[in-house]
Write a protein that binds this DNA or RNA. Structure first.
Lengths: 359, 359
DNA sequence: TATTAGCACTATCAGCTGATGAGTGCTAAT
DNA sequence: ATTAGCACTCATCAGCTGATAGTGCTAATA
């Protein structure tokens, strides 16, 4: 595992003309996926510079660490540092075409998606389809979500189904075992007690409170309360399975774009470790907006040939999760960045709408 | 789409020696994944036959349609017909090693899997890992499963959560919208009515009955009954999303075994069409035991370079779904067949245990 | 002084070559 | 019926070729 690179900032100031050349090379490589040479660049740039001059500039840019060659006589390709420069300096907040906006909106508004899970899956698939890359989405952490409703349903003398609904519309089920046979009436009392007690609190907080009250009231004689606490404890112990949705893995193998990526295998393997991916998605210091990790800026070694573009989605109050794509470093940032950004916004909007149905 | 081939039966009787040669070629190709020639076969067979004799036999086998050559001078490989012969005549019910049996049993008995869904996913993953192929599993069709419990939970004045538990432990949630504000008490009455009315019937049947009673009792005045029927209708309209779990797709790309498969892409694309896969898995006439589709015996064109080995799993009463793997036609049948068989059995057993907790 | 034309150098790629080897089919001998 | 022997076929591979596209350097130029 290599040392973590925070961000490839550029200290030196680069003169206008050099910048234009650099930009030309980057965009050339993005569109063609081929190393760009001085001759062709001299034509496309239309700056009236001869290939020789361009070569000199290119040489400077190589010295500054913006360009590299796969071999002599191969034309140059941008380094991660160059992409960082490009993203920071050149890519401006771009408007998506109306058509694309429509497409994203429609896809998220499809019917039958009252469960957040379905919405997330279909959005993930959408983004993978639009970008032709791999799309990763982390589901809202059940931990921090707000309790809307908890209910116990007696299945048999030994089994109780816990249904837990969160503010943002996630529904979690769990079957718990009991030693004692509890009647449905009793369970109803317990659940209305818990609902009253813990309404609008985060699951995390609730769990804490339950544990505390267990310590406090060890010698509680009220049967209802005792059982409520006991059942509550089990119910809120719902293991916080790291939920990550991954779509578009086949793009990784069949897309032309990924062909010169030295280890698609490594990426695939990484995707198997959901909890690691979860961590990667959610470990963002910056609270808002879009985050971009280019090449070696990525913490994970197998991601270091790629760029990850991600953004948080939220309801009106809290950040819920992250949606992002991972693609080659020479992805079309001008498109990908606004697409991810817009998709995250629409996702937030849709989820907010849903949770606003609460009374 | 090519004409459906039912099964590649062999009419001719083949003499003992020829059979042994054929078997040798098949097993040779299975282990080496290379066309097998007369010389090497003469050695490994240890029948005291010279390469020339073997060549004559091979020539006969080619005429009978059991062998083919990719090009002259390449050695021969078995045809689909040969594999069919091999599977029918040669592969005997094989015992798995204790070690493998243990491994499968342990994997399915892991904790925290009281939901059938989790069990199915982890079993699918297990089988993909064991075989190094792609594993496909269809979940029990909610349609035909037996109602154990239905419950309505009032979320807001406009939203009701339906929780539906089936006999085999599947839990389905759906949020439905209402125009009228219904109290939780009322909902409880409705659900206990429905539970009583429809206990132990299949969802399919229940839906039918509800529709019938709507026709019959158009002018029903009983508010409870009317609402119960209306809510029931919505609840049992749960769209029967074809649930298929697919694991091990990466094997398709990286495994040596698949490398000479002309279209991994086609397979990947096919996997995207879950409902088609679902159909493929569940469309089996034969009720019991293991089913094997070799090469062109597969209905789906993109599967016709592969072999699919599948088996149904069930609870004590009914077939619930199918689990199977898809791999190259020269897979190691001696291993794969018993592994799939055993896994399906263990899966049935585990699910049966779970649903037996019902009172 | 910045730019450019010219030239030598170099890596890659497609296409060709001949050698090699694995495998077959046929025929004649056993 | 089996087998040894031989001619033949074909795929693969290493090595060579010329064409191409790129560079770096130097000297001439505006």
């Amino acid at each position: 595992m290599s040392k973590t690179v925070q961000r490839l900032e550029t200290k030196e100031s680069i003169d206008e003309r050099t910048q234009r050349v650099l930009r030309g090379i980057i965009e050339g490589y993005i569109t063609s996926n081929e190393p760009v040479g001085s001759r062709s660049l001299s034509k496309t740039l239309e700056m009236g510079l001869s290939p020789a001059t361009i070569r000199n500039i290119m040489s400077d840019l190589s010295d500054m660490g913006f360009l590299m060659q796969l071999h002599t006589s191969a034309g140059r390709i941008p380094t991660d540092k160059a992409y960082r420069f490009y993203v920071d300096q050149v890519v401006v907040a771009n408007q998506l075409t109306r058509k694309l906006q429509k497409r994203i909106q429609e896809a998220t508004q499809e019917g039958g998606m009252n469960q957040v899970e379905d919405l997330l899956i279909s959005t993930t698939r959408l983004l993978a389809g639009l970008t032709q890359f791999v799309c990763l989405t982390s589901s809202p952490r059940v931990e921090t979500s707000i309790l809307r409703r908890i209910e116990f349903i007696r299945l048999s003398s030994q089994q109780i189904l816990v249904v837990l609904v969160t503010r943002n519309g996630q529904v979690r089920n769990k079957i718990i075992a009991t030693t004692e046979d509890l009647s449905q009436d009793f369970l109803n009392t317990v659940s209305s007690f818990l609902n009253e007690q813990f309404h609008n609190r985060s699951l995390h907080k609730i769990r804490q409170q339950i544990l505390e009250s267990m310590v406090e009231d060890k010698e509680r004689y009220d049967r209802l309360l005792a059982q409520a606490v006991r059942l509550g404890k089990k119910a809120f112990e719902l293991e916080v399975a790291p939920e990550v949705y991954i779509e578009g893995q086949h793009n990784l193998i069949f897309s032309e774009r990924f062909k010169n990526l030295n280890s698609a295998r490594g990426l695939m393997d990484a995707f198997e470790h959901k909890s690691m991916i979860m961590h990667l998605l959610d470990s963002t210091v910056e609270a808002d907006g879009i985050q971009i990790y280019i090449g070696i800026e990525n913490e994970l070694e197998s991601f270091q040939d790629c760029t990850m573009v991600k953004a948080q989605y939220s309801d009106q109050n809290n950040i819920l999760g992250t949606i992002g794509v991972i693609g080659p470093t020479n992805m079309d940032y001008q498109i990908v960045i606004p697409v991810v950004d817009f998709t995250a916004r629409i996702l937030s909007q849709t989820i907010t709408q849903q949770s606003s149905f609460c009374d």
